[in-house]
Write a protein that binds this DNA or RNA. Structure first.
Ligand code: FES
Ligand code: FES
Lengths: 141, 141
DNA sequence: TTCAAACTTGACTATTTTAGTCGGGTTTAT
DNA sequence: ATAAACCCGACTAAAATAGTCAAGTTTGAA
């Protein structure tokens, strides 16, 4: 089990954005340079973030992106959800009657995985972008 | 992020084994049939479990595998560790001074991921094979 | 003593996921 | 006009996953 770069990049980029969008929109080029993330990849990520209304775009020269909500109101679960970073522990469809092996009863690990999934979701739901920005400012940069 | 089948299979197989090894060793063929897991794949998994001394093998006809410890003493972390199911959240080398992007400072998400990793590890460390067997017996089968 | 059930080992492979890249756009401040 | 920026879809290389396959060895029981 591992978290993927997509989710990590999304969080890194949004923290960067939250720190710098006070006055002007922030261009992906700047984020790319500061965070060391491929520009083309960032564009894919921000396209998703925009569709989920986490950021707004400003087109044209001097354009970029701005947060669409207060940093306090953006939870990590929202971010992960937007970029399709799945916290997927159970293998079966949850609402299905069938288990992961096609049998008509859930497998012995099902409840366990499900419980873990809740743990993780709660963890990410308790963290906002603001928390991360603060945390980051404290340890300087 | 997702847990892989390897870890899930290992746990399923060991619960099965724990339930049936009271008298005789349990053959992988039986586990394969009961749990719907490829026999060849199970062999790979049990080879690892044996090397980490979680199970013992009994060769020859009527052979199979038996637990090498009390079910109570086998934690899920031990199982995952044995089959190389990694709970890997941070992307960088933890002990390295460098961050995941090669910069000389850890990225903004590092602490967060690390904290999550501890959460998950604690969760799995608190669950023994015995717990799962009990849980499984309660809901009948 | 022969046989088949079962473990043992290592290599090979197909599928899926990830992490990009690439090539073309469109918009808009200057 | 032009260049900085966003926008979009298709393509691809690399890695991880989930197996498969082939060729053994061991040993209880008929
Ligand atoms: S994970 Fe849901 S039935 Fe196995
Ligand atoms: S995950 Fe450790 S530095 Fe980014």
């Amino acid at each position: 089990m591992r978290l993927t770069s997509k989710g990590r990049y999304a969080v890194m980029a949004l923290v960067d954005l939250a720190k710098f969008d006070n006055i002007n929109p922030v261009s992906l080029r700047d984020i790319s340079l500061r965070q060391g993330i491929s520009l083309d990849y960032l564009e894919q990520i921000f396209s998703k973030l925009r569709k989920k209304e986490i950021v707004q775009s400003v087109r044209g020269i001097q354009g970029g992106y701005v947060l669409n909500k207060k940093a306090k109101e953006i939870k990590l679960t929202n971010i992960f959800d937007a970029v399709d970073e799945k916290i997927k522990t159970v293998q079966c469809k949850k609402e299905s009657k069938k288990g992961c092996n096609g049998k008509p009863i859930k497998c012995v690990t099902h409840n366990l995985w499900d419980e873990l999934e809740n743990h993780i979701t709660n963890f990410f739901d308790g963290k906002s972008l603001e928390d991360l920005v603060k945390d980051n400012n404290e340890r300087r940069f």
